[in-house]
Simulated assay, not measured.
Amino acid sequence: MTFTAQILTLYPEMFPGPLGTSLAGRALAERKWACDTINPREFATDKHRSVDDTPAGGGAGMVLRADIMAAAVDHAVERMAEQVRSSRAQSRDGLAGNDVSTSLDTNGEEPLAAVSGEPVEPRLSDGRRPSTSSGLTDLPLTAPILAMTPRGKPLTQARVREIAAGPGVTIICGRFEGFDERLFDARDIEQVSIGDYILSGGEMGALVLLDACIRLLPGVMGASSSGDDESFENVILEYPQYTRPQIWEGRIIPEVLRSGDHAKIAAWRKQRAEEDTRLRRPDLWERHRDAPDQSPSGAQEKDKDKE
Results as ranks from 00 to 15, higher is better:
108 G>W: 09
32 K>D: 03
75 H>F: 15
38 I>M: 06
37 T>L: 04
64 L>E: 04
47 K>H: 08
83 Q>N: 09
79 R>P: 01
44 A>D: 12
38 I>W: 05
103 S>K: 15
121 E>H: 08
105 D>F: 15
105 D>Y: 11
32 K>N: 00
42 E>P: 01
69 M>F: 09
32 K>Q: 08
90 Q>C: 05
97 G>P: 02
71 A>W: 06
37 T>C: 14
69 M>N: 02
74 D>C: 14
43 F>P: 10
72 A>W: 02
88 R>F: 11
48 H>E: 12
62 M>G: 03
86 S>H: 08
40 P>N: 11
120 V>F: 02
52 D>Q: 00
65 R>S: 01
97 G>A: 14
40 P>D: 09
123 R>W: 04
41 R>F: 15
58 G>V: 01
53 D>G: 05
121 E>F: 09
65 R>I: 00
89 A>G: 04
88 R>N: 03
121 E>P: 10
38 I>A: 04
92 R>Y: 14
49 R>G: 03
96 A>R: 13
106 T>L: 12
67 D>L: 08
61 G>R: 04
112 L>M: 11
101 S>M: 09
35 C>H: 06
35 C>V: 07
85 R>S: 15
88 R>V: 09
107 N>E: 10
117 G>L: 07
100 V>S: 00
114 A>C: 06
119 P>G: 05
45 T>P: 00
32 K>P: 02
35 C>Q: 07
43 F>C: 03
63 V>M: 00
76 A>Y: 01
84 V>I: 15
47 K>F: 09
31 R>G: 08
100 V>E: 01
85 R>H: 15
72 A>I: 03
71 A>N: 02
97 G>L: 02
32 K>A: 04
112 L>T: 07
45 T>W: 10
119 P>V: 11
42 E>D: 15
77 V>R: 15
35 C>A: 12
66 A>C: 10
53 D>L: 00
117 G>D: 07
52 D>P: 00
40 P>E: 13
106 T>S: 10
86 S>Y: 06
92 R>N: 04
53 D>R: 01
90 Q>I: 00
31 R>V: 05
74 D>W: 04
98 N>H: 07
60 A>E: 08
67 D>R: 04
74 D>F: 08
106 T>M: 10
80 M>L: 10
92 R>C: 13
116 S>F: 12
47 K>Q: 15
108 G>M: 06
45 T>A: 15
76 A>F: 06
58 G>P: 05
109 E>A: 09
95 L>A: 12
66 A>E: 00
71 A>V: 03
88 R>S: 14
46 D>R: 13
56 A>P: 07
84 V>F: 08
70 A>K: 10
119 P>W: 06
30 E>N: 00
95 L>H: 11
56 A>E: 05
107 N>M: 11
